[in-house]
Design a protein around this nucleic acid. Structure first.
Length: 580
RNA sequence: CGGAGCGUAGCUCAGCUUGGUAGAGCACCAGCUUUGGGAGCUGGCUGUCGCAGGUUCAAAUCCUGUCGCUCCGACCA
């Protein structure tokens, strides 16, 4: 490709709309342009890089035995009602209406479509296992699109769905995808790590996310360097979660109500004159769960993990109660709330408590009357608790659940997610088969997503410097840029560059010839900004010595080689780099 | 949806407080010079000041509404 014949609108400055470096570089390098918030056009260079990622995904999915299909983006809402997800997914579903005012939804994912297809077309265990995948545009009405391609309304996703005859077989399918994912991201030049993940609205029993460590990531991950335990913070547990070891195992003195005028927060009660340390307080939260109040108890210094609460509740439609609602149900305002039996007027409100409070003694909590608290609270003796569970957010430095070493926290970008789904969808949508003994059984499913456009941006986020992108050869829009340093349309420099360009093209190298009438500085800056893995400079100065310069974007000193061997040398370097 | 901020040339931004002929740099076009790290000089082009309404002799500037964008929180590949 010749630079003058394509469209590469590089930008000297970053547009104000781009906050994180990968988003800025996507725009500055002329890879994408925004049409609207979370909606992007791919320009020639961006599309080439995107196709490279897609190609890697396709090769590895095929290698893992998955088969490619293409499912409709336009879906009837009825199938979402059939799976029972219409309500849960409604916030992310784009709805469109045809001329007959009939409603359609734009596909954010395809569990329903593929499961119905399998229900119709697969009847026998002989046709299993199968794993179907597609690479297609997905639509999600994101609450807040941001960071360019990272969280877009419209994005490209690879989604795969496996169907197996048994749980054991499904486990193998899951593992095959897990392994394929590790290969895919490695081939994209990404350093990723897998973490245990929450299953969210999709549901299922086992799940891992593939994470790219990055400060700008939207996920927080807890991990242990000693044993390799790693989990999304939504899911993470630590060794402190199981008890309240700090509490002395003594019998609490009798419950005592005492005045606490003006106390609103844990910190207020921890201050003079009360001086109750947060770990000796009980935090009482009130949530409205599908318009019903729900009390959640935690130790004063712990924070609620809403994902864990959602998992236990089996719904995501809950929110913190307003001060008015709290007053209505508990007759006190936030600041003096508690679940001491004698102070709970309404016994129909469920009380859930974090495991860490189990057996705790001599605690302090609100009395459900403004300006009063109880001290010497014995959780077992005095509190009403309907259900115990792990509800707290893990903090850095807590002991690892597996090995006891100190847990660390870091931010990361989620680029892939694998789920073991079980039979949730196959039962609802009728994907079943007849087994060897003639019994009809539901398929055991798994589903597996890769954010293809997000992966592309994650590569940039992870691989750049002050000058621009540093593409791994595997996803670079072009492997080599031949930089021609002469403006005149004829002459030895030009002829040499043209000859080298043709030689590389014929050698099967993906090469772009910078034939623009621009100053050298401009060409160098653009080549660095876009990040071609190899830059080959043909200019008067080195050519006078019969040489051409080869420079790697990733670093190292430029190498001068003779004109005659330049082509073969560059091609050899590229082939070596392709092998990784 | 809640909180914060911003909408002025293709891009980055000034001008708004205190109303009075819409600006700079980069980019773009022409010419001359320059040619190994975002050149110099000369000349030129570029705007419904996000949109609508209001106040005023007069609005980019003040007021109201609205739309869009960005950031923080809840959702996710």
């Amino acid at each position: 490709m010749r630079w003058t014949q394509t469209l590469i609108p590089t930008l000297r400055e970053a547009p104000a709309e781009a906050e994180i470096v990968s988003h800025q570089l996507l725009l500055r390098a002329g890879l994408v342009r925004k049409l609207a918030g979370g909606v992007y056009s791919f320009l020639p260079l961006g599309l080439r890089a995107l196709r490279k990622v897609e190609c890697i995904v396709r090769e590895e999915m095929d290698r893992a035995g998955a088969i490619e299909v293409l499912l409709p983006a336009l879906q009837p809402p009825e199938i979402w009602q059939q799976s029972g997800r219409y309500e849960a997914a409604r916030q992310v579903l784009y709805k469109v209406y045809d001329s007959a005012r009939r409603e359609w939804v734009l596909s954010p994912t395809a569990e329903e479509v593929i499961t119905l297809l399998v229900a119709a077309e697969i009847q026998s265990y002989r046709q299993l296992p199968r794993n179907f995948y597609q690479i297609s545009v997905k639509f999600r009405d994101e609450i807040r699109p941001r960071f360019g391609l990272m969280r877009a309304r419209e994005f490209i996703m690879k989604d795969a769905y496996s169907f197996d005859v048994s749980d054991e077989a499904a486990q193998q399918s899951y593992q095959r995808m897990y392994d394929a994912y590790a290969r895919i991201f490695a081939r994209c030049g990404l350093r990723t790590f897998a973490v245990e993940a929450d299953t969210g609205v999709i549901g299922g029993s086992l799940s891992h996310e593939f994470m790219v460590p990055a400060e700008t990531g939207e996920n927080e991950v807890a991990y242990c360097e000693a044993c390799g335990y790693a989990a999304n913070l939504e899911k993470a547990v630590s060794a402190v979660a199981g008890g309240c070891s700090e509490s002395p195992v003594v019998e609490s003195p009798a419950l005592e109500r005492f005045p606490t005028p003006g106390v609103q927060t844990i910190a207020d009660l921890a201050a003079e004159p009360y001086s109750v340390p947060p770990e000796r307080q009980i935090k009482t939260l009130v949530y409205m769960v599908e318009s019903r109040p729900w009390i959640v108890l935690l130790r004063g210094d712990d924070a609620l993990n809403e994902a864990k609460l959602a998992a236990r509740l089996g719904t995501t439609t809950f929110r913190p109660a307003t001060a008015e609602e709290i007053e209505q149900w508990l007759r006190a305002r936030p600041g003096s709330l508690g679940a001491v039996r004698s102070a709970l007027r309404d016994t129909t409100v469920p009380v859930w408590a974090d495991e860490r409070l189990r057996g705790a003694t001599d605690m302090t909590t609100g009395a459900n009357e403004d300006g009063f608290h109880f001290r010497h609270v014995d959780v077992t003796r005095d509190l009403r608790v309907d259900q115990w569970g792990d509800l707290r957010l893990v903090r850095a430095g807590e002991p690892c659940i597996r090995c006891g070493e100190s847990l660390r926290l870091r931010r990361a970008i989620e680029v892939g997610h694998v789920f073991k789904l079980g039979t949730k969808y196959s039962e609802k949508l009728g994907a079943s088969f007849i087994d060897e003994s003639g019994v009809r059984r539901p398929c055991v499913m798994g589903c597996y997503g890769i954010g293809v456009t997000r992966t592309l941006q994650a590569v940039i986020e992870q691989s750049h410097d002050a000058d621009g992108i540093i593409w791994p050869v595997s996803v670079a829009p072009y492997e080599v840029c031949v930089t021609l340093l002469q403006s005149s349309p004829t002459g030895q420099v030009r002829e040499t560059a043209e000859r080298l360009y043709r030689e590389l093209v014929e050698a099967g190298i993906e090469v772009i010839l910078d034939d623009r009438d621009e100053r050298p500085g401009v060409k160098f800056k653009d080549a660095d900004l876009i990040g071609f893995p190899f830059r080959v400079t043909v200019g008067e100065k080195s050519l006078a010595r019969g040489q051409i310069e080869i420079k790697r974007r990733a670093g190292g000193t430029p190498e001068a080689v003779s004109v005659d061997e330049a082509g073969a040398r560059v091609a050899a370097y590229v082939r070596e780099a392709r092998r990784g």
